[in-house]
Structure formats: structure tokens, C-alpha cells
Amino acid sequence: MTPAVELRDVSVHFGRTVALRGLDLSVAPGETLALLGPSGSGKSTALKAVAGFLRPTSGRVLLGGRDVTDEPPNRRGLGVVVQSYALFPHMKVVDNVAFGLRARRVPRRAVAERVAEVLALVGMTGFGDRYPRQLSGGQQQRVAIARALAIRPPVLLLDEPLSALDAALREEMVAELLRLRAELPDTAVVYVTHDQGEALALADRIAVMRDARLVEVGATPELYHRPAESFTASFLGASNLLPVEVVDADTVRLGHLRLAASSAGLPAGGAVALGVRPHRVGVRAVPGPMTAGSGQTGSAPTDSGPTDSGLAARLLAVQWRGTGYRLDLELDLGHRLRAEVPDVDGLTVGTRVEVSIPDGCPLVRVA
């Protein structure tokens, strides 16, 4: 199948600044690909290269197998939605949505029918005579999406479209985008975001980017549960990265613990770490004297202590997060890690604790 979007060794330089370096990536028709990464990682630059807003310094951009590297944006036939909405403030909603159709000299009756169709698709029927200033942020974003979809683009580019919305509206718009994706099964979507929740909810595949480079790309569940790179594990799911000794292909040693690890696709050699999600870390109090907050342990507890299945640690900080608690811990091995637990019965700052690490955590390459 010919990719809807293909980037071949695309680099973008601004003088001596490298904004994108050697990106190879493709998106299939009907697929949603999220470009995920921190600010300055190159994800928006990649999207602008696809849209035609930036010309690559080197490499080629193809749409449906056609090389469009040297073509302007208006000849690429793409739908684009940006975080600022970019609606024309002096135009009513119907005119904003109809803009691309009229630029293509679509007959007036067909324009009216298509505008009504896409406004219904995004739940904005009845708002056609309003101006953007009369709409909420979420409504303006729906109009921007309707305008992008009006021309029936084979590819929809979304550049952090929800970042200007509050948390409640973002949740609503994620649900709306999921519904739209089901309504448009043949439209390829490239979704740029720094929000891992949006990427996990919407994308079939995720491309993780950092420092103008592609770090790793894969199917969303696979990348979340079995990342190969330490940056992916820490950025996508906030994994704790614990240095371990590799015993064999499926087993590692952490202190006195031997743990089964998932290492599919990880080449032999090089430094590795175990990626442990905070919600998978078990924590229980261990009786014994200790000076809270001093950072120094007292005498070892005599009635109980860490078991063969756990690691000794000290609780450094507790944060209530509404749905549970975030714990910052320091293992006696010297490593810091974070846990997320539903309650903190018997746990206070300075408490001696036992930490349990589950089998099956991914083994990741340390850059």
C-alpha cells in the first residue's frame, strides 16, 4: 500500500541550528500517527515540512507516492489545524468553513451542502451565523477542524490542537477526535503533541522525538509496554529507570532480586536499565527506628524487615494527587524511584519501607 505521507531522510536547518535531522517516517492511509516529544524535539518542524510551510534542507516529502517537496501548501490538498485555531475573525463560521472550497471554485450549492455536512460532523450545526469571538475555545477548535475537513483531504495535520484548551475541554475534544476518526476511516492523521495522554488515546502508532531526531516509533500499545529506549520509557509513562545486571536474555539482577524482564528486540551489548512504571511499584512499611527527615537510618528493625522479594528503601516525600499518592523513594542500593499508590496507611516521610518490583518490566537501552 502506498503511504499517505512519507518523509525520506528529511532534515531542516536554520543556519547552524538543526531543527530536524534525517527523519524517515511514513503514515498509511487511515492511520493516525502521533509525533510525541518535548518542546524543541522537531515534531512541529516535521509537520510543517509535510504541510509545505518549510522546505527541507535535504530529503524528500511524498504524499500518496507523489513527490511534493517543491510544491507550495495550497497544491498539497492537506487539511491543517493549528493550536491557535487561525480562524478569520471578520468571517462568520460558515464562511470560515467554506474558505477552502471557494478557493477551489466549488459550485455555490455544493459549498453550502458540504459546509452543512462538516458542521454536523463536528457538532456545530446551528452556529453558522456566529463569529469566532462569539464561540468558546472548544467551539472554535471544532470550527477549525470542520474547515480542514471541508475539502475532503486525504491527510489531516493537527499541530497541538488542544494545547490552548482547559483540562475539561481537552477531554471533551479527545472524545470528539476519536469519534471523527471513526467517521473518516480513510483519512490519514498526523497529530503533533507533547501530551502523552492524547497520543495514547488517539494514535495507532507513536513516533517519539528528541533533539531534532526520531528516537523510536511503534504501535501504541507496544511502545508503551515494551519500549526499547530509555527516553521513550521515561517520557511515555514516566518509568523509573533502574540500572540492572543482565543475567540472561530474560532475567536481570537488581540488588539481591532476580527478575524476569521483557527485552524483545533489544540488541546485545551496551548499558541497559529496567523501566518500571510508578503504578507498578509496591510499597509497604517496615517497622524499625528511624529519625524522620534526617536521611539516616537507625538500628535495623528486629521484628521484621525487607523480604527476599523486596528491596529496602526510605520514603523521601509524599504528594496527594487526588486519585492516590505519589511517593518519592530512595533504595538502599542508592537509586531513586517514584511510586503511585492508592493510600499511605502507615507511611510517613522518613519511614523505612520495602519496595517490590514486578516481573515483566521492559529492559531498555540507556543512551
Rank of each mutant, 00 (worst) to 15 (best):
D129A: 12
A148P: 03
P72C: 11
L337P: 01
D24Y: 04
P154M: 01
V281P: 01
P29S: 13
Y325T: 05
R114T: 05
P358E: 00
G295V: 02
G255I: 06
T307G: 15
E71W: 03
A19P: 01
G42F: 11
D303M: 11
S356R: 15
D204H: 14
G79D: 07
L327G: 11
G346D: 08
A292F: 12
L337D: 04
E222L: 08
P358W: 00
G128M: 05
V10A: 04
T232R: 13
V12D: 03
G346I: 05
G128T: 05
V18Q: 13
P73R: 08
R258D: 08
G275Y: 04
T348H: 09
R280T: 14
K92R: 15
E330P: 00
R258H: 13
I357T: 12
H279T: 00
T232N: 14
L241K: 00
D195V: 05
P185G: 12
Y224E: 02
L35H: 07
T307L: 10
G288A: 06
L202S: 05
F53E: 13
L47Q: 14
D95P: 10
L25A: 03
S299P: 12
E172Q: 15
R321A: 10
R75A: 13
A271F: 00
F235M: 06
Q83S: 08
A112V: 05
V244R: 09
M124D: 08
D204G: 07
L62V: 01
R179C: 00
A285Q: 09
P161N: 01
H13W: 03
V122Q: 09
D159F: 02
A238W: 00
E229H: 15
E171L: 12
K48S: 14
R277H: 08
D211E: 14
A86F: 12
F14Q: 08
R108E: 15
E340Q: 11
F127N: 07
L236T: 12
H13S: 08
R326C: 01
F231D: 09
V247C: 02
L35K: 07
L347F: 10
P362T: 05
P154C: 02
K92P: 02
L35I: 04
D24A: 14
L33I: 06
A19N: 04
A116F: 05
A4G: 10
L337E: 03
G59Y: 04
P73E: 11
H256T: 13
L25G: 03
H194Q: 07
A116H: 13
L242M: 04
A164N: 15
E172L: 11
S41G: 08
L101G: 03
V344T: 15
L214N: 09
A167V: 08
D166M: 04
G137P: 11
G59P: 06
P153W: 08
